[in-house]
C-alpha cells in the first residue's frame, strides 16, 4: 500500500513538479525544507550524535567495559528475552485478530477494533499499574499467587506481560487495513478449488500480507526492546535480574556513570538504527514487488 503511493508519487514527479503553474514559489520551498531539515537536525540527529559521542568520550575501553559488565549483560539478555516472547505472541495474536476483523462479519467487530488500539492510547505507566493491581500482593490474584509461590510482578513474567501489553497493537494494526483492502475473494477461490484452510492461509493469505506482517514485526520488536514506563513499574529494579536495558541506562546515569549509561544507550540506539534500516529495506522490497505486480 505504501509502495503504491510511493510509486504513484514517483511517476507524478515528472508530470507536475516541472510545470511552473503547479510549482510552489522558491521561498516556500526553501522555508519548508529549512523547517523540516532544521527540526530533524536539532531533535533527531543531534541527540543521536550526542549519545555516541558521550558513550565514547572516555575511550573505547570504558565503552566495552560498560557493555560486558554482568549487570549490563543481564539487562541485555532480559531485553532480548522479553522481545523474543512478546513478538511471537503478538504475531499470533495480530494475525488472528486481523483475520477475524478483515474476513468475518460478527457482532462487536467495531468494539474489538477499538480495543486493539487501547495500548496505544493508555499511558504505559497505567499499563504497568494495571498488572500491579491484578498480580501484586495487594491485588486480585496476589494471595493466590503467594500461596502457590508464583511470582509475576517484580519478576521476569511481569516484565514480559507489560511488554506484550504495550506492543499489542503493532502487528494487528499493520495487517487489518491490508487484509480489509484485499478482501476474501482469493481465499474463497482457493477454498472452492479444494484447498484446505491451512493451505489457503499458507499459499494465498500469507504471501499477500507478508510485507505488512514483517513491517509490523519490526515495529513491534523496536517497541518491545525500548519500552521504559510500563516495565519500570513492574520491574522492582533488582540488579542483574529484573532490569531491562532502558532501566539499566537510567540506573547508570543516576550513579554518575555517564559514559557507561551512554554506552548502553548507544547499543539501544544501534538496535533502533538497525530496525529503521530493516524497515526501509522491507518498504523498498515490498514497493518493488508491488510495482512488479502492478505492471501488466
Amino acid at each position: 500500500m505504501a509502495g503504491n503511493a510511493a510509486s504513484l508519487a514517483r511517476k507524478g514527479e515528472t508530470r507536475f513538479e516541472h510545470r511552473s503553474a503547479t510549482r510552489d514559489p522558491l521561498i516556500v520551498r526553501v522555508l519548508v525544507l529549512t523547517v523540516a531539515l532544521g527540526f530533524f537536525a536539532i531533535f533527531l540527529l543531534l541527540p543521536l550524535v550526542v549519545v555516541f559521542a558521550e558513550a565514547l568520550r572516555k575511550g573505547f575501553e570504558t565503552y566495552w567495559a560498560a557493555l560486558v559488565d554482568p549487570d549490563a549483560q543481564s539487562a541485555i539478555r532480559l531485553t532480548l528475552l522479553a522481545a523474543a516472547i512478546a513478538v511471537p505472541l503478538n504475531l499470533v495474536f495480530g494475525v488472528s485478530a486481523a483475520w477475524a476483523i478483515a474476513k468475518y462479519q460478527f457482532r462487536g467487530k467495531a468494539f474489538l477494533t477499538t480495543l486493539i488500539d487501547l495500548p496505544f492510547s493508555v499511558s504505559p505507566v497505567i499499563a504497568g499499574l494495571i498488572y500491579v493491581l491484578v498480580f501484586g500482593a495487594q491485588g486480585w490474584f496476589g494471595p493466590w499467587l503467594r500461596e502457590n509461590d508464583i511470582r509475576v510482578i517484580f519478576a521476569v513474567p511481569g516484565i514480559v506481560l507489560a511488554t506484550v501489553f504495550v506492543t499489542f497493537p503493532f502487528i494487528a494494526r499493520e495487517l487489518i487495513p491490508l487484509m480489509e483492502q484485499q478482501g476474501s475473494e482469493e481465499e474463497e477461490a482457493a477454498i472452492v478449488l479444494g484447498a484446505s484452510g491451512w493451505q489457503t492461509f499458507w499459499r494465498v493469505t500469507l504471501p499477500n500480507i507478508k510485507w505488512g506482517l514483517l513491517y509490523g514485526v519490526i515495529l513491534c520488536n523496536a517497541r518491545a526492546m525500548g519500552e521504559f514506563g510500563a516495565v519500570s513499574v513492574v520491574s522492582g529494579h533488582v540488579r542483574g535480574e529484573t532490569n531491562t536495558m532502558p532501566l539499566h541506562v537510567e540506573i547508570l546515569y543516576n550513579e554518575y556513570q555517564f559514559a557507561a549509561a551512554f554506552a548502553v544507550a548507544s547499543l539501544l540506539a544501534l538496535l533502533a538504527l538497525l530496525t529503521i534500516a530493516l524497515k526501509s529495506l522491507v518498504e523498498w522490497r515490498s514497493g518493488r514487488t508491488q510495482s512488479r505486480e502492478d505492471a501488466p
Binding site: Q138, G142, I153, F154, G236
Partner: peptide, 8 residues
C-alpha cells in the same frame, strides 16, 4: 510501595 505490592 513495591515491597507492599509483593517485591520479595
Amino acid at each position: 510501595r513495591a515491597v507492599i505490592d509483593g517485591l520479595d
